[in-house]
Structure formats: structure tokens, C-alpha cells
């Protein structure tokens, strides 16, 4: 027992001392925490099992508490693969030269943000945002996470473009709920009058009967833009063997477990490239989130 402790102590101090890690053969991935944690853990443990079966290496999923933590872990090479949103993916790939977007959901080619409102505001759904100006001005409004594409970047872009004002000037109070599920709950409960969220989260919750449609409704849908994608570090082949990156890509594209896909929710994965996300980068630079 004592010997074991000493061994463990020596091992762990060595771990602290050297960069060479004992778990080099474990392929670690993370995902932006855009929804309820229980759901994420369930979903990505499934992905970890699937990948480990396909790739013949140990695969581990690490849950994180913020978008930035996901980007940092990727940048710091503590994770080698990540399920990013449009913006976090652009941030991550800028910081890690050689990293690549390898796959996106079928739905991510044309993703949308829904603006939702508590029905007590009696805001009627509209085709264009400009016509809602009078009804929206001065309301309380919540984004999702500060680093979210569908929950922050795109809605902020459209607010600025349509109303020529920063969100905090246009609305009476602006908050960041943290994630899409919470945005939905907060607007449903009336804590915020209006909010913006990922349309897939809305559709899935609606389908599952988790939305009180008498309390909250969609009032505007943004035009389509590219969003979520799997991004992998450029140096994985050196660490996990030649062709590893392609094998990961193939495995993701071949994923056809209905239940697992349903949990994303995506109907499948298709190839993606860094260039697909240029519009996101430009938008982020335009509103000053990226330098």
C-alpha cells in the first residue's frame, strides 16, 4: 500500500515535471457547453465509445464550463479534437496553425438563429427584423453564451445591422444566459422578454414536448449561416500515427447510429473545410469580437 502510494507520488510528480504525458495514447476531445450538461455528457460519451471502437485508441471526452475553456484546451493540446460552434472554431483554428475543420452536421451548412419572445410581450412573428423595431426596443434580451455563434455572434450582428445600435443600447437590459437551453427557459419563464437561440435546440425541445408554446414563441428567424463543426489539431498524425486524421474524419462521416445523431441533433455528418467558415470570421471581425 505504502509502496504503491510512493510510486504514485513519484509518477504524479514526474507528470508535473515533464511535458511528456503518461496518457499520450489517449485521444481526448471536448465540446462547447452549449446545452444542458447532462445531455452533453450523455451525447459525447456515446461519441467517445464510438470513436474508440473505430479508431482503436482510448478516447476520452472532457466536459468544460465555457466556450473559451474548450478553445483553450484545444489550443493547449490537452484535447486534440473538438465539436466547436462557428465562432469558437474560427478562434481555435486561428490559434492553432495547421488545425482543420473536418466535418460538420448536415444542418450546419445552413444554420439559423431563432429570436424568441415571451407571449406576454404580444410581439407578433415577422418576416423581417426591421418591422419589429418598435416592439423590441427597450425590452429585456438575453443572448446565450458570450462565445456562441448562434446565441451571440449572429443575433448581435443582425441587431447592430438592422437597428444601427449596440444591443445594450437598443434593449433595456441585456444578459448572457450561458447556453441555449437556459435562454429558452429564461424567456419561457419571463425572466427575459426576448432571447436568441440555436434553432436546432428549439426544434428538438419542441419535438420532445418540452416547450410551453403558450408562454414563448419564435418571432424572427435569421438568414442561414454555417455553424458547428468538428475541428482537429494538425499534429495528431505525429502523435497517433500516419493517417490518423483521415481515420477520424472517416469515422465521423460514417457515424450512422440514429440515436447518437438524434442527440446532437443532426441527421448526419458531411465534410467541412476551414474556408466554409470565412463568413463567420468576417462577421466576428465586423462586430469586434475578433481582432
Amino acid at each position: 500500500m505504502a509502496l504503491k502510494l510512493i510510486r504514485k507520488f513519484v509518477a504524479s510528480s514526474l507528470l508535473v515535471m515533464t511535458a511528456a504525458s503518461a496518457s499520450a495514447e489517449t485521444f481526448v476531445f471536448t465540446a462547447i457547453p452549449d446545452e444542458d450538461e447532462t445531455k452533453l455528457v450523455e451525447r459525447f460519451r456515446g461519441v467517445a465509445d464510438y470513436l474508440s471502437e473505430q479508431l482503436d485508441v482510448e478516447v476520452r471526452y472532457i466536459p468544460v464550463k465555457s466556450y473559451a475553456a474548450a478553445v483553450s484546451a484545444f489550443r493547449n493540446n490537452q484535447v486534440q479534437l473538438a465539436w466547436f460552434g462557428g465562432l469558437s472554431g474560427v478562434q481555435a483554428r486561428r490559434l492553432v496553425p495547421g488545425s482543420e475543420a473536418i466535418a460538420q452536421g448536415v444542418e450546419d451548412e445552413a444554420f439559423q438563429t431563432y429570436f424568441i419572445a415571451n407571449t406576454s410581450t404580444s410581439i407578433d412573428p415577422a418576416e423581417d427584423l426591421a418591422s419589429l423595431e418598435d416592439q423590441l426596443r427597450g425590452k429585456t434580451f438575453t443572448f446565450g453564451s458570450k462565445g456562441s455563434t448562434s446565441g451571440r455572434l449572429m443575433p448581435e450582428f443582425h441587431i447592430r445591422e438592422t437597428f444601427n445600435q449596440a444591443p445594450e443600447d437598443f434593449f433595456g437590459r441585456v444578459g448572457f444566459s450561458g447556453n441555449h437551453t437556459r435562454t429558452l427557459r429564461l424567456v419561457e419563464a419571463g425572466t427575459y422578454e426576448v432571447g436568441a437561440l440555436n434553432f436546432q435546440v428549439w426544434e428538438k425541445e419542441l419535438e420532445d414536448g418540452n416547450i410551453d408554446t403558450s408562454a414563448v414563441q419564435v418571432i424572427w428567424e435569421t438568414p442561414a449561416y454555417p455553424d458547428y463543426q468538428w475541428t482537429i489539431r494538425g499534429d495528431v498524425n505525429e502523435r497517433f500515427g500516419d493517417g490518423f486524421k483521415d481515420r477520424v474524419k472517416e469515422a465521423l462521416l460514417a457515424l450512422d447510429d440514429k440515436e447518437l445523431l438524434e442527440s446532437f441533433p443532426r441527421s448526419g455528418f458531411i465534410p467541412a473545410s476551414n474556408e466554409d467558415y470565412e463568413p463567420i470570421r468576417k462577421t466576428a471581425e465586423e462586430i469586434g469580437i475578433l481582432d
Binding site: 504514485k8 507520488f9 507528470l15 511535458a19 484546451a73 490537452q78
Partner: peptide, 15 residues
């Protein structure tokens, strides 16, 4: 106590 901190993820010193 140091043995119960969990393993976490290895440090990469370049970072």
C-alpha cells in the same frame, strides 16, 4: 490530499 486531486490533463510547458 495531493493523491486525491485527480489526474486532470497533462501540462504542456510550451503553453
Amino acid at each position: 490530499a495531493p493523491f486525491f486531486l485527480g489526474d486532470g490533463l497533462p501540462i504542456v510547458w510550451g503553453n
